[in-house]
Simulated assay, not measured.
Amino acid sequence: MEKLKFSFQVKPTPDGKSNYIAITSIFTQDEKVFLVPEEYQAASLHKHILTSKAYATVRNSLKKRHQTRSVWIKTTKDILETYFDEAENMIFQDQFLEEITQGQLAAINKNNSEDPMVKILEQLVDDQQNKEKQSIKKLADKFVIEKFDGRNISASHWMEVFEKECARFELVECEEKIEIFRLFLERTCTDWYSSMMIKHGFQSKWSEWKSNFLQTYANKGWSTSKYALSFRYQSGSLLEYAIKKERLMLEIRKTIDHGTLIDIIAAGLPDFITERINKEEVEHTSDLFNELGKLEHLVTKKKFIKKKEDTKPVKENCSICEKLKKGVRYHSEDSCWFKTRINNEKEKEKKQIKLINNAELECELQYQDPKN
């Protein structure tokens, strides 16, 4: 037997929430048809078929529920031993397969497709699945997780939370996880997502995406750990400091014990705060948070409004007004009303002095001896 034809079909799981690929029948080269029992139809049970190149193409071809493909697969020694006994009877997992004619197979397929109840149920399931896919963004709004930008949180910790949220909303299919994964990425992470989509697409396995994500954004240095350990209280709320310190420590070491975590948080507090807290009474971080809430008044800054001092400049009396005997007036000489007048008087004095000097010079020239 050089080759066998296997009929593949996409079938719904018993709960109707997901699909699986099934092998429904097997054809031989002499046109014999053998039915595969329903409990043995899952392709995952036929391990030697899964490893064939033909199955990889079939998996990429079957994308919707109830789609079918019939493919010839070249037999190997393992395939022959799996589906034939020593007498060349068709078997699978110690079960003899039922032989039927091709006419009977066509009738079975027709009955299954024309059953009105089956059609109604299939339509309801398809409608429900389409509705769930359309509301993927609404479902993402219910996720209790912050968006990842490559710098705000540990990649491994974030991925752990993301997978827990997927499990909480029963997102088990690889395609569903890959699709909703995009809605929680920001900044350069969206470029990484686009590159992965070009290389792998929706039909790839989620494990490939997860592994690549952790390798790309894994924190390979000590900067995060050093920042978390050196983070200390500077100002503001004591409770806000303690909560942030706890988050930073849990991101770098999730398995840290309560006692060590409390000691590290307390080490970053001022001495006058820790001196007022009884360490023996603090068993959990919530106890420490409660104590810090009672001590908030010690670090609350009170704002006092200081009265502004009178810094008005002392004005000097105007010298122009004094010269003109206008009384003692306090304003600048540049803004004095009589500035123009005093300037005009100064110009007149300069002209008179010039005329007098010219007259004296003329008289001297008249009485001077011309011989000289």
Rank of each mutant, 00 (worst) to 15 (best):
D30Q: 15
D30F: 07
E31L: 14
E31A: 09
V33Q: 01
F34H: 01
F34L: 00
F34W: 01
L35V: 03
L35W: 02
P37G: 01
E39I: 13
Y40I: 12
Y40D: 08
Y40W: 06
Q41K: 04
Q41L: 03
Q41Y: 04
A42L: 11
A43T: 08
A43K: 04
A43N: 06
S44C: 12
S44W: 12
L45M: 10
L45E: 10
H46M: 06
H46D: 02
H46L: 02
K47N: 11
K47I: 11
K47T: 12
H48D: 14
L50I: 08
S52K: 07
K53M: 13
A54M: 08
Y55K: 03
A56I: 13
A56S: 13
T57P: 10
V58E: 01
V58I: 05
R59P: 08
R59L: 07
K63A: 08
K63Y: 11
K63F: 15
K64M: 10
K64V: 11
R65N: 10
H66Y: 15
H66Q: 11
Q67H: 02
R69G: 05
S70W: 04
S70A: 10
V71Y: 01
W72E: 05
W72M: 05
I73V: 04
I73N: 03
K74R: 08
T76F: 04
D78C: 09
I79D: 00
I79H: 01
I79P: 02
L80D: 10
L80F: 07
L80N: 14
T82A: 02
T82Q: 04
T82Y: 00
Y83W: 00
F84W: 00
F84C: 02
E86D: 13
E86A: 09
A87N: 15
A87Q: 12
N89V: 07
M90L: 04
Q95R: 05
F96V: 13
F96R: 07
F96W: 05
E98L: 07
E98F: 05
E98N: 07
I100P: 00
I100R: 01
I100A: 01
I100T: 01
T101K: 04
T101Q: 03
T101C: 03
A106G: 08
A106R: 09
K110I: 13
N112G: 12
N112L: 10
E114V: 11
E114Y: 07
E114S: 08
D115V: 05
D115G: 00
M117R: 14
M117Q: 15
V118M: 07
K119E: 02
I120E: 13
L121I: 10
Q123I: 15
Q123Y: 08
L124I: 14
L124V: 15
V125H: 10
D126A: 11
D127H: 07
